[in-house]
């Protein structure tokens, strides 16, 4: 069995509203799947169903081969789950809450102490371990939730917005933590911070209106960006028209646009027709025409643009379909 987490056609309706509409995906050990989507797209609902908290109207979620609905206890033993908003028992201390979780997880004595100490260290909670949760800042609360999720070294981690409310240093730390654990685990994190995908995820799934609209590595997704492999260059202002002509004549290039124009120089962007790189062709063509290039950059494409493009166009299509 290679897939540790399998979602098969999960569907959830709230009244007439279809929150999650047939989501299927598999996460293998070593994979960190970034679950992206606009607010209300069904991210949290999907994660709640995957964790066995919400009962799906159709479909099955399996954790390490155990159906979360019918074989809940076995499934939950393999699962670490950080719910949305990282709820905690306000009157308990961070340590008390971890002890409670350890006890429920069947850890006792030395095993429990080791697990708790390790979780406290990895989530960097030592300074607040004896403080009640209600007195903790948002960032610490989230880290208590995270410590609770990783306490028993589970095979599958489902983390709903693990870095929300953390400062940049803490974010960095949590991402490192996730990366460190990634090798043997199947991890899903939901986020609306796209840089997170680049930082920790080996794969990204974008959902919109309860459906998967994109699934691939960050690099694959970026390939969908309009400006993927577009070349931006700076030439002397006098060379602008000459350069434009040369680029337009070149095979494999599409639109050429002027990005900015100043007294000394102008910036041009040339789009490729396919996703293939055109940088060397562009450089060669300009050199042949003796146009001096002051700067040349190949654009990778921004995930944010892809995200916006996919999720808004899908929304518009649905709008049209609904009449």
């Amino acid at each position: 069995m290679t897939e540790m987490l399998v979602l098969d056609n999960l569907t959830k309706r709230f009244g007439p509203f279809v929150a999650v509409d047939g989501i299927s995906l598999e996460v293998k050990p070593g994979e960190v799947l970034g679950f992206l989507g606009p607010n209300g797209a069904g991210k949290s609902t999907t994660m709640k169903m995957a964790a066995g908290f919400l009962i799906p109207d159709a479909g099955i979620a399996r954790i390490c081969g155990h159906d979360v609905a019918t074989d809940a206890r076995a499934a939950k033993q393999h699962l670490g789950y950080l719910p949305e908003g990282a709820p905690g028992y306000s009157e308990m201390t961070a340590l008390g809450m971890l002890r409670f979780a350890a006890s429920i997880r069947g850890l006792s004595g030395a095993a429990a102490r080791t697990a708790i100490d390790s979780a406290i260290e990895r989530a960097d909670l030592a300074t607040v371990a004896n403080q009640t949760i209600e007195t903790l800042s948002k960032g610490f609360k989230r880290r208590v939730g995270l410590a609770q999720a990783i306490l028993h070294d589970p095979d599958v981690l489902i983390l709903d917005e693990p870095t929300d409310g953390l400062d940049p240093n803490q974010k960095h730390q949590v991402r490192n933590l996730i990366r460190d654990m990634a090798a043997q685990k199947a991890i899903i994190i939901s986020t609306h911070i796209l840089e997170e995908v680049d930082a920790v995820c080996s794969r990204a799934v974008i959902i919109d209106r309860g459906r998967i609209v994109a699934d691939g590595t960050a690099r694959e997704l970026k390939r969908r960006a309009e400006n993927h492999n577009a070349v931006v260059m700076r030439v002397a202002a006098g060379d602008l028209d000459k350069a434009k002509k040369a680029l337009a004549a070149l095979k494999g290039t599409g639109r050429v646009e002027t990005v900015s124009r100043g007294k000394t120089g102008a910036r041009l962007r040339v789009y490729p027709v396919t996703t293939k790189s055109i940088a060397s062709d562009v450089a060669a063509a300009l050199k042949a025409k003796r146009i001096h290039v002051q700067e040349l950059n190949v654009e990778e494409g921004r995930l944010e643009d892809v995200f916006r493009d996919i999720t808004s166009s899908e929304a518009e299509l649905a709008e049209v379909a609904n009449g």
Partner: peptide, 14 residues
């Protein structure tokens, strides 16, 4: 109200 029910019910308890 506090959402801890989600935490509690996803622990391995019936």
């Amino acid at each position: 109200k506090s959402g801890t029910i989600e935490l509690l019910m996803t622990l391995p308890v019936t």
